[in-house]
Nucleic acid binder design. Structure first.
Lengths: 190, 190, 190, 190
DNA sequence: AATGAATGAGACTTCATTCAT
DNA sequence: TATGAATGAAGTCTCATTCAT
């Protein structure tokens, strides 16, 4: 008996997280109501509260799921390769942004809105630190000057480019990223 | 109409807009209540509604005031000089961000949150287009390759750097901006 | 000095009462705001309150003015004639309704809405009793059977016809009134 | 959807409509507050808004329910008989007014107050047209002259009599109606 | 597990009225 | 006399959350 129920339960929870993420990204966190989520997920209010004890809990779960996914992405990327070049880092970053566009909209939104302070500060910081560590490594290995400062500049720039990409349908990410990469020395061989 | 009334009215309105901007930037637009604004401004709820017919109207007024200020900044900048170099553009941009830090937090927040769609879309677009035009001019005059694409990259990067600066007290803007400028050819003479 | 000021004062008061009546009739008493009245009358809020100490006071003044007008109408009607026939009564009634259409809309509205109970009960009753007395006299003099009951029926019917007339632009009052009169014996000579 | 929920829901909704009608009739639509309704119905404010999305919606629902009831009354009346005489029409009309006195007060009030224009215009018109059709039929069948004009006169008169009846406890409706009927030719045999 | 009825605090907004000038 | 700034109580409506079934 247990397995079937656990599966159903998990399916419902995943659905809630997915729908919640979509709505939070589209309308913002505050304007999205728990009722909207339940309705779009096709479940009752009560059931949603059986799974998550509050709206904040839903938000946190969304972040935690996406942190796991992001980390998995980077782990795969590392394992399947000898090291991460700057080139690979940036491509991996935008691949993730493309695949999880709603999450990144929400991430950037909350980081700015001060809601962070109350609910997902730690999760935001964790994501930032994961990226920062990997990137700094890249830059050190690539023997680029001022790796710390360059990491700050690059992370900020990537955030900016990602946002423009997320907000404008026609934003030419690939070209822009190419232009960005041209400003950094390329490894000899590909 | 008598001067005295106009002055009083203007004083109250400016106060509301200032306090509103501060609170919107600190807590986000939705979580900030009209009552919070009135209380922090030291006026009654009713008075606020004598001047602004809705919360959205307060937001719009804040944007319009800041658009005027930004445009004035750039106009002064132009007049006092023969042309705007990339260097000057970026310094001017960050000067504005520093002086109006709360506005820029709000700007970036709303652009992401979808609240834009309902209330200040036009204002956001206007700000974007003002900056884009000036920057593209710079790049053309500096004879930089791909000025259109570079403008996109640079605007996005500046947004990213501005955000990191706005969110982290200790962010070394000056150093980061310096590093950024090094990636572009400098005009021969200063 | 006094005369001029008194005139001005009176003109303003009359304007307020006129505008108030129009708005009360168009929107209903409760939905009409004091501000609406002041604006449409082209005066300030404060001035309105110099003349009338409350919204209810404005309403009461409107009723009192119209009661005086109605009574004057009937007095003139009597004086200029030997007696009032049913025919004359009805024609006089509708003449008044036509000339003071907004007042009668308001009158019927308030009589039904329960607002009467709080503010103008006495005025409403006075108007009713004035009409009832005159009409009963008519019926007695015309030697109609059941003058009391007929008065009730006729007053009610006239109210109904007046309302339909007030609410429908194209209501054929004259024809309807003619039809009504045919149900009563006509005095031999005109 | 489970029956139990439906029953509970329906019970609450009917209660709200009943209490709402009573209060609207007693105080008028505008002066009656949603809180008054909720309190008198013994439920919370929030629950009321679970079922009706606005105060106007409550009003509309009240009208729709009463329109259904009125139509049902007339349908029954027709079925159980070969045709509707004028006599029957009037008796049926006043039976309905007696049984639904609060609704009719509200109906007459709103028709005059201009609130109609915004919210229940259609419903008001529907009620008027239902009565008008039936009555005109009666008059045609009874071979009364000017059936169209007579219908207008009679509907107006009935409205007036109904209002006096609704507003004065001691109004002798039966006698007045009797007197009214005497002005029309009676069918020979019953 | 699942439902949706029910709650109540609190949000936005309105408006009669007062007050300083 | 005349203005409109200022007030605050009260109204409509929302929404996260709990509860009975």
């Amino acid at each position: 008996m247990s397995t079937k129920f656990v599966q159903k339960r998990d399916a419902s929870m995943q659905l809630i997280l997915q729908v919640g993420l979509d709505l939070f990204a589209e309308n913002g966190y505050s304007p999205t109501t728990i009722r909207m989520i339940a309705e779009k997920a096709g479940i009752s209010l009560g059931l949603l509260y059986n799974y998550f004890k509050s709206k904040e809990e839903v938000l946190r779960a969304i972040f935690q799921k996406n942190i796991r996914d992001i980390q998995a992405d980077w782990r795969n990327s590392k394992e399947s390769d000898q090291g991460i070049t700057l080139n690979r880092f940036i491509r991996q970053f935008f691949k993730n942004v493309k695949n999880n566009n709603h999450f990144w909209i929400l991430f950037y939104d909350l980081r700015l809105s001060g809601t962070t302070a109350l609910v997902v500060t730690n999760e935001v910081k964790e994501i930032e630190s994961v990226l920062q560590k990997i990137l700094e490594n890249c830059l050190v290995e690539a023997e680029i000057a001022f790796p710390g400062l360059e990491a700050k500049l690059l992370l900020a720039s990537l955030d900016g480019v990602a946002q423009h990409f997320l907000l404008q349908n026609s934003f030419p990410v690939n070209d822009v990223v190419h232009l960005l990469l041209m400003k950094y020395p390329q490894p000899n061989a590909k």
